[in-house]
Design a protein around this nucleic acid. Structure first.
Lengths: 240, 240
DNA sequence: CGTCCTATTGAAATTCTTCAACACTCGTGG
DNA sequence: CCACGAGTGTTGAAGAATTTCAATAGGACG
């Protein structure tokens, strides 16, 4: 069924793409990949730009190439909750389930590989393997959402902030500075956004970061870059 | 491909089952349905019994026929969070994604139609339509999880309790007593469980119920049955 | 250098939890 | 039939955690 092919048959666009291995594109054979890639465009979103708007059928789906996307929900009175963060090579959007009330917004600059809605849905309908990848992504996001529910419902402010830092440390700096468990990374969110992710106010987030710093769990450089000397200490601060 | 069939070809077990229309079984043709139903068993779980245990590959999947199933996560130190409630005809379990750290437990007596793991996974692998139904269920659960994240992170105790009552009113008493918007229903959870669902203590839950009662939003009969004279008032108390 | 935006810190107010006592319901057995 | 006890739910008062309000600090940029 699936022919063995030369690497040269893989579209240029896709050669170096992470999503081709771990992401949804990994399910496609070279012919399908070529067909999809013809409609694919690389797009860059500046910080704050919306990839998907709540209540609207999105014009396109996308694989994240770099950067962080935040998924947010908004109440009428302005209260906001970030319900997920997505990193490369996550898939943004949700084929098969109409419009949602979640907005996808770039947190910092984000580069994506975007596909027109119709093209991707057609592809997913034709390729059970791709549909399966999308299914797996949904299940993974479900697990992550439930894990975060535990954090929102049952952890203290201190633990919440530690959990957030751990999340970013793991996703955002997998390779960085691995000398004896120490890691350095940039926060993709402002304090206000961290608050919206953790169900806390800006001030509480700031105070908890200060306390973690004073406890020696982390070091902070110019507000947005964090150094974790001992990952184990950070994990402990999460309450695990 | 799919023959037109007499109703008599539908397995007896499935004739009156809600899941055959709205649930995952709805995707199967009579031949497949018959094959699945041969391995299906009706089981009853008493309150507190586990359908799925965290960290273990479940022996069987199940469609809920009646009752409420709670999905819980547990921390080492005993803190607990209910991450979802499931009602008929929801599907319990999560094919394609190994063991999870979520436990599924009967909240009150629960009747299910259970399938051996291997049978169902085989079926889902062979029937893209069934796989698609499972995918849709995962997406729906994801939406519900994120909606609840908003509640956990951004709503006050008062609003949380109102949201919970609204959730149960909608799922548990869709038809009951529809005279001019008034509804009466039983709570499937104890106060402690409601607390674990909302990220609150027993006492806070109790106090907020009292306050909603004093505000005339609800009436309470013997602790576990709730009367909502005006659904609109309850919705307003949720902060929507 | 001033301005805007983000972040930090302090003090008071509020919400929620904790600790403690008591009430209600239901089933069991005297 | 009533008393008893366990489980469940309610209420009060004190305490802790978090928010709110307010002031200040630090960078980035024109």
């Amino acid at each position: 069924m699936r022919r063995d092919v030369h690497n040269s048959e893989v579209p240029v666009l896709c050669r170096a793409c992470e999503a081709r291995h771990q992401g949804v594109c990994g399910a496609l054979d070279p012919v399908q990949l070529l067909r999809l890639s013809r409609h694919a465009t690389i797009r860059t979103y500046c910080s704050g730009r919306e990839l998907v708007t709540a209540g609207e059928q999105p014009a396109r789906y996308a694989n994240i190439l770099s950067g962080v996307v935040k998924l947010t929900k908004l109440m009428e009175d302005g209260r906001q909750q970030i319900v997920a963060l997505q990193f490369a090579p996550d898939f943004v959007g949700r084929p098969f389930r109409g419009a949602s009330d979640v907005t996808a917004e770039a947190a910092g600059e984000v580069r994506v590989c975007a596909f027109p809605r119709a093209t991707l849905e057609e592809m997913a309908a034709q390729s059970p393997a791709m549909a399966h990848r999308l299914h797996l992504q949904a299940l993974r996001e479900l697990d992550e959402a439930r894990e975060w529910m535990l954090t929102l419902g049952r952890r203290s402010a201190r633990e919440k902030v530690a959990c957030f830092l751990l999340l970013v440390a793991r996703h955002g700096a997998p390779e960085a500075d691995e000398t004896e468990g120490t890691r350095r990374f940039e926060l993709p969110l402002t304090r206000a956004e961290i608050g919206d992710f953790l169900g806390l106010t800006i001030e509480t987030v700031s105070r908890q970061i200060t306390q973690l710093r004073q406890a020696g769990v982390i070091a902070v450089e110019r507000s947005r870059t964090i150094v974790v000397p001992q990952m184990a200490a950070l994990e402990k601060a999460c309450g695990v």
